[in-house]
Design a protein around this nucleic acid. Structure first.
Lengths: 199, 199
DNA sequence: GTCGCAATGTAAGCGATGCTTACAAAAGGA
DNA sequence: TCCTTTTGTAAGCATCGCTTACATTGCGAC
């Protein structure tokens, strides 16, 4: 799985991001150990610190990857949709798809002390911002009559509905008797419906 | 701050839960260190393990406390309301109040590997369940005509809206240009409105 | 080409964490 | 009063993030 491998690794930085992504997809942010990554890449435990000031900086890079992927999913959804209303629906669905399709990465993107930190890297901030703007544009396009405040209100409350559902499901809060006669697929459609409802 | 203090502490278990609660309110779940708690209570680092099998079991007890508090807040809100519709609104508001008033405790309650764990203590599971039922009852009472599936749909999507907003705010996702002309108070009312909207 | 510097890697160790094991003290019932 | 159970302690293991001092190497200036 590795070539030659002299004293220098070649591209340890990229390798670390890749390995961290894999670890995160498997077990979420807390499953990423710098020591493990270093060992699996055949490198000393101090080597990662040549490329990242600390652990969170590496995680932030992975999270940025996730936001870029989300933004691209938004773009695809909007390009493929027949009209603005459908585009909004598919944008919301893309959010759910990323969250449930790659839960570890999704948890990394919202890991709390990554984006909302004084030392958050610019790559993460801009990626997160672009993803937000992809969502925002879809809401604005679907309701051309709405003013700025109204669009933001709808974008934020809709995002809240999507995000809350994901967090509750992933936290195991919606199980058994709580959902009783409803399947997860039905719930997902209900959430999508509420997300799109402009109250 | 302590009396006599012989070899035995007196009620170390309760003291640990109290200290953990205080630490959690200050800095969330990850700010709770068993060693710190033990030291602050003047006890050895191994002593806590006489009362809790591991760290998560202690955190679970604190989370259970939070759910009991939430359930009581629900009960108060519903008792004070003039009608079922208002009761539902105040129930939702109670959720927001707990979340924003005691963010550390709230984060503990939804700390991911506490409720949704094979070894979750019964005290936590029942407390979480009762809180859910408090919310569920408010939704059912507000719409007497709705069938079981519809009530659950509304309860879950409404809860998602509330919860998602809280998580996004606490994660620092709604800052600056994202909310631009809206204040947090306005957003909170918008979220409340969307929560109550039966789509 | 070669020489020197900046970039990148290593070895060793610090301090903190959760948790375990073997032992000591004390509380409380027979 | 004794003896069992409960509750505490001391010491130490493994892991983690991170730091420091040093080793190696690639690469650009001459």
């Amino acid at each position: 799985m590795a070539t030659s491998r002299g004293y220098h690794h070649g591209d340890l930085r990229a390798a670390l991001i890749g390995a961290a992504l894999a670890a995160a997809e498997a077990g979420g942010p807390e499953a990423v150990s710098l020591r493990d990554l270093a060992q699996s890449l055949g490198v000393s435990t101090a080597a990662p610190y040549r490329h990242f000031p600390d652990r969170r900086a590496l995680l932030a890079e992975v999270a940025a990857l996730g936001f870029r992927e989300l933004e691209q999913a938004y773009a695809r959804a909007q390009a493929d949709a027949p009209d603005a209303r459908a585009a909004l629906r598919e944008t919301a669905r893309a959010y759910l798809t990323l969250a449930f399709g790659r839960p570890g990465l999704f948890r990394m993107m919202f890991a709390g002390d990554l984006v909302d930190a004084a030392d958050a890297p610019a790559s993460l901030l801009s990626a997160a911002r672009e993803a937000w703007e992809g969502l925002y544009r879809a809401v604005a396009a679907a309701d051309p009559g709405a003013d700025l405040a109204e669009v933001k209100r709808r974008a934020i409350t809709g995002w809240s509905t999507l995000h809350g559902f994901i967090v509750l499901v992933q936290g195991g809060r919606l199980k058994g008797f709580m959902t009783e006669p409803l399947t997860e697929a039905e719930l997902l459609e209900a959430v999508l419906e509420k997300t799109l409802t402009a109250n």
